[in-house]
Design a protein around this nucleic acid. Structure first.
Length: 511
RNA sequence: GGUCCCUUCGUCUAGCGGUCUAGGACAUCGCCCUCUCACGGCGAAAACACGGGUUCGAUUCCCGUAGGGAUCACCA
């Protein structure tokens, strides 16, 4: 099993997807999950990317089973394996299966232009491969003059030949054989030459004893090249599994999820929003095997993933579905666990929230316990840790702003005098009810004395006789207590807040 | 453009010749529960890209067409 990121930018969700599959397949088959850093492109290398990858992989619980310092097949970074690739390339040259090519970039682009004009296959082959069978003395002269060169494979492919190979996900695939003398070792100013992906990956997979080559669909078309390279080196073929890319809807079309255009393409996006890693992993597993998407998060993470079941068309990343999975998952957690995760997230992404919650963890647990602890169907209000502020923030004084204007629009447009009277009367007769019905009966009694109808029905029947119904009255109390128009049952909120705080918040409206 | 891959409700998909008046899940909408939410219950709307074959019979097999994706680098 292998997962091979290249440090050329931020970690892509698709990278997490493939890494997750790699790890899952390795785990369920007693295999080893390794990560190889493919950093053979010096020009695109991004400073610090490897460290970022490591941090993100760690966050997702997708760190490799083997790594430098602990693993039999290291080093796991390709740039440190340059001598290995070079010795294989030398062997190929000795046996006439590879050769140096001195064509310059300009010559190559001119050739490509000519090929386009003539409408022939682009590439380095046949009459378009000037150095393939160049005389020795000519090669020697170039070598002696110190001109830069690359090493190319001497492709045995012929024009019309077809090759067939088996892909675990797609079954049998037939394609034209490769006839292109691909570059296997790039040019270099010094004696150390780096390989191209094509060459490096199969040497590594062979040496590291990979049992499945799991990679993105974009590699399908280069399998014929890899097959020839395998053959030239005398390596056995390793089964391929090409995974369909994660997609994005754009208008009526869809395209590959793009790091540049789509914020949700980056793995960091999910960390910042505070999605639980289990939910993301479960969601991703569901995309790979829809069978898993019908299961609970815990089950979907423990059931095996089957590559053969994976779809061949790229699935759309549906954040609404992720939200659902995430809220199902959080609903299975204890309040203490939720709190711990919220704090870990907030420490990095919402320090003010972290400080407020940290100052009264007990309050936080009691707030989270509402309709969560000891109930059959827990609340599914939280889909990600960043939701905590909106749903529970008002319990914490540093995050709560008193509602002191009786004409505040959140109060529903009830006459300010009535609002004031209701709040005053409510405090006058305050009792902390032990259950919802009792609480509501109490509120009903209070609001009736302030001119509210005891039932919504009564109000509807004679709107002129009342200032509102008990529904409006309870909304006033709700807004006073929470600053929002939506909250869990108010008797639960008051119970968690405690009488002094309830008095302070409602008192603010009395003036 | 050449080549390869793909095509069932908005989305993820089940289906592997009759079981399909096409099933599920998410999303949407409606009703119920109800002090507002959330949860929960019930229900609705919603798809086999198109055209030819093969067959007694095609969502399922074959061929075209259309559409989508990928790839044609000293990037991975």
């Amino acid at each position: 099993m292998r997962f091979c990121p290249s440090p050329t930018g931020a970690m892509h969700l698709g990278g997490i997807y493939v890494a997750m599959l790699d790890q899952a397949i390795a785990r369920q088959s007693d295999g080893v999950y390794i990560i190889r850093i493919e950093d053979t492109d010096q020009e695109r290398e991004v400073e610090g990317a490897a460290g970022d990858f490591d941090r993100i992989l760690r966050w997702f619980g997708l760190t490799a089973d083997e790594f430098d310092g602990q693993g039999a097949y290291g080093p796991y970074t390709q740039s440190q394996r340059a001598d290995i690739y070079m010795s294989y390339a030398r062997d190929l040259m000795r046996r006439g299966k590879a050769y140096p090519c001195f064509a310059t970039k300009d010559e190559l682009t001119a050739m490509a232009a000519e090929q386009r004009a003539m409408k022939v296959q682009p590439g380095y082959y046949g009459r378009w491969a000037p150095w393939r069978d160049a005389p020795d003395d000519q090669v020697r002269a170039k070598l002696d003059s110190g001109q830069p060169y690359v090493i190319r494979l001497r492709s045995p492919g012929e024009g019309e030949r077809r090759v067939t190979f088996t892909d675990i996900i797609r079954g049998e695939i037939t394609a034209n054989d490769n006839q292109n003398d691909v570059v296997i070792l790039k040019s270099s100013a010094n004696s150390l030459r780096l390989p191209t992906y094509h060459f490096a990956h199969l040497i590594d997979d062979h040496l590291m004893r990979a049992t499945i080559v799991l990679r993105g669909e974009e590699w399908i078309s280069s399998v014929p090249v890899h097959l020839q390279l395998l053959e030239a080196n005398g390596f056995d073929q390793i089964p391929y599994a090409h995974v369909a890319p994660l997609m994005k809807q754009e208008g009526s079309a869809r395209r590959k999820l793009s790091k540049r255009k789509d914020p949700e393409a980056s793995a960091e996006f999910y960390i910042e929003a505070g999605y639980p890693r289990q939910a993301i992993l479960s969601f991703l597993r569901g995309l790979a095997n829809s069978r898993l998407s019908y299961l609970s998060v815990a089950e979907s993470l423990s059931e095996p993933v089957h590559l053969e079941e994976a779809g061949m068309a790229g699935p759309l990343v549906d954040l609404a579905k992720l939200d659902h999975v995430a809220s199902e998952w959080i609903a299975t957690m204890d309040s203490e666990d939720v709190l711990r995760e919220v704090l870990v997230w907030a420490a990095h992404h919402d320090p003010k929230l972290a400080a407020a919650v940290e100052s009264d963890r007990d309050l936080a647990v009691r707030a989270l316990d509402i309709e969560r602890k000891g109930v059959e169907n827990p609340r599914k209000d939280l889909g990600k840790w960043s939701d905590f502020r909106a749903y529970y923030g008002y319990f914490f004084n540093p995050l709560f702003e008193l509602v002191s204007d009786p004409a505040d629009e959140r109060l529903g447009g009830i006459d300010p005098e009535v609002v004031r009277t209701l709040c005053a009367t409510y405090l006058d007769r305050y009792v902390q009810a032990t259950d919802g019905d009792a609480w509501f009966e109490h509120l009903r009694a209070v609001s009736e004395t302030c001119g509210f109808a005891a039932t919504v029905r009564a109000y509807k029947d004679a709107p002129d006789q009342y200032v509102g119904s008990v529904r409006e009255a309870s909304q006033i109390i709700r807004v006073a207590l929470t600053g929002t128009k939506r909250s869990p049952g108010l008797h639960l909120v008051t119970d968690v807040l405690g009488e002094p705080e309830v008095r302070r918040r409602i008192g603010a409206l009395v003036g």
